[in-house]
Design a protein around this nucleic acid. Structure first.
Lengths: 93, 93
DNA sequence: ACTATATTTCGTTATTTCCCTAAATAACGA
DNA sequence: TCGTTATTTAGGGAAATAACGAAATATAGT
């Protein structure tokens, strides 16, 4: 859970998730949307993956990233739990 | 919005919010719940305040912190927006 | 085997974050 | 005003994070 919030803390990573929400994209296609160097983005992908917020699978030479919706929903639920709102499961950490 | 996710990224700050959700507490009362030095916690309060996640008011020599529920709810809504879920307002950044 | 393309890993630098102790500030009561 | 309590600010060191260019890896096609 902490990994998730760490991952969400960076604006670029939130923007990546927002892109990915519409449709899965290759690392390169995502990189085209940013001014940031590819190695830097690659690092962001790694953080998102560590948080299990995205999954990746290779297709030939390109790597396709897709959002892991359930984890994103869990995070939202976690926040609602913090807020003490309806529909929130019990949470740790 | 970025400030909010930054603030939520630290486990201690999330724990503070969770405490404060039940009832407003003084800085010292919160500090009693942690092993962390008071100045360190004071720094965490400052981050939470910068994100507008908590408000503070002084009562004599003690300072009472309370959660700003609406901002916490906004953050949850922001996440749901990322997840593309119902009930989510449009969001920037 | 060689070349080209896509992506990541490595090594480095700069910035930020986190935590601490010590000192400062604020408000109270005697 | 003095002393006490509650909290914050200041200063500093260690560790984490973010960014880059260069080099490495993986795959496909020739």
């Amino acid at each position: 859970m902490s990994d998730v919030f760490d991952a969400l803390a960076h604006p670029v990573r939130r923007k990546i998730l927002k892109l990915l929400r519409k449709k899965p994209m290759s690392a390169g296609a995502i990189a085209d949307r940013f001014e940031i160097a590819k190695p830097t983005l690659s690092g962001h992908f790694a953080v998102l993956k560590a948080a299990d917020l995205v999954t990746s699978d290779r297709q030939g030479t390109t790597i396709i990233y897709r959002v892991n919706m359930s984890v994103l929903e869990e995070a939202a639920a976690g926040l609602m739990d913090l807020a003490g709102l309806r529909g929130a499961k019990e949470s740790k950490s």
